[in-house]
């Protein structure tokens, strides 16, 4: 029986968001069925944590315990940045598969798969932050502030990741294979995460590098996270980090959308 319903001529932003959430649910189901897809956001943070704290901690900060306290908030930022690489990879892998043709032949918003992929990434962000925190707490890390500020820190980190992942979506729409996404983005992610005060205080660096480190959004966000988790000022740094994030999204969201449209038609 064909039921004659009114034609769908336009998809409202509300429906687009609903489709996006449904597709984010798909991403979550896939993670649940295939937990090893989370290895990159679980194993890597642990390795970084152990490596830096026990190998370099004594040299950089004098004691591994003290170093763990200042390192962890920064490592959270670094891992969010790395986790955001996954969005472009996942989306690249997805659009080359037949299932994308099905989505495209259905009356759903063109942008829904994009929104779904990005929302689904919140799961990866939460997982990477949880793993880092749990291992760090076992190693002796303690949040010195209150739950309110802790939650603000988490929210800021995830917001930063959600803005940053448009860069990876953009690259993911330009390259041929998923593996090319991290390869291409290394040139972007490394200066961003290592050229910051996450691992070493900026005043230990040569002047030209200090200039970059001091304006780097990762430095600002790491400072804000330290303030929020350990106590101290955080508002100004959070503001700078937020502005940076908005700026990155303002540039890369339209670029990503255009590249996506061009790629999937």
């Amino acid at each position: 029986m064909t039921t004659a319903t009114a034609p769908i001529t336009h998809i409202s932003p509300g429906s687009a968001l609903r489709h996006g959430f449904t597709l984010a649910g798909r991403a979550v189901t896939k993670v649940r069925k295939n937990p090893e897809s989370l290895l990159d956001v679980t194993l890597q943070p642990i390795i970084f944590l152990l490596l830096f704290v026990y190998l370099f901690g004594g040299a950089i900060q004098g004691s591994t315990d003290a170093y763990l306290q200042v390192l962890l908030p920064g490592l959270m930022v670094q891992n969010i940045a790395f986790a955001s690489l996954g969005t472009g990879m996942a989306l690249n892998a997805d659009i080359t598969k037949g299932v994308f043709d099905r989505f495209r032949s259905m009356p759903i918003a063109r942008s829904a798969p994009l929104i779904g992929a990005v929302l689904g990434d919140i799961v990866r962000f939460v997982v990477t932050l949880t793993v880092l925190l749990v291992v760090a707490v076992i190693m002796g890390f303690r949040v010195q502030t209150d739950p309110g500020r802790f939650l603000i820190a988490i929210a800021l980190l995830i917001a930063f990741g959600l803005c940053l992942c448009w860069v990876s979506v953009f690259v993911g729409m330009l390259v041929k294979s998923p593996q090319a996404v991290p390869g291409t983005l290394v040139a972007f992610i490394f200066p961003l995460t290592f050229g910051s005060n996450v691992f070493v205080p900026s005043d230990s660096l040569p002047g030209w590098l200090q200039v970059w480190v001091d304006i780097n959004p990762v430095t600002h966000l790491a400072n804000a996270a330290r303030g929020l988790l350990l106590g101290g000022d955080w508002v100004a740094d959070a503001g700078w980090a937020f502005l940076w994030a908005i700026g990155i999204a303002a540039v890369f969201f339209p670029l990503a959308l255009r590249a996506y449209r061009r790629r999937v038609g």
Partner: peptide
């Protein structure tokens, strides 16, 4: 070519 999601 099949357009179902292999992982689901």
């Amino acid at each position: 070519y099949a357009s179902v999601d292999e992982d689901l």
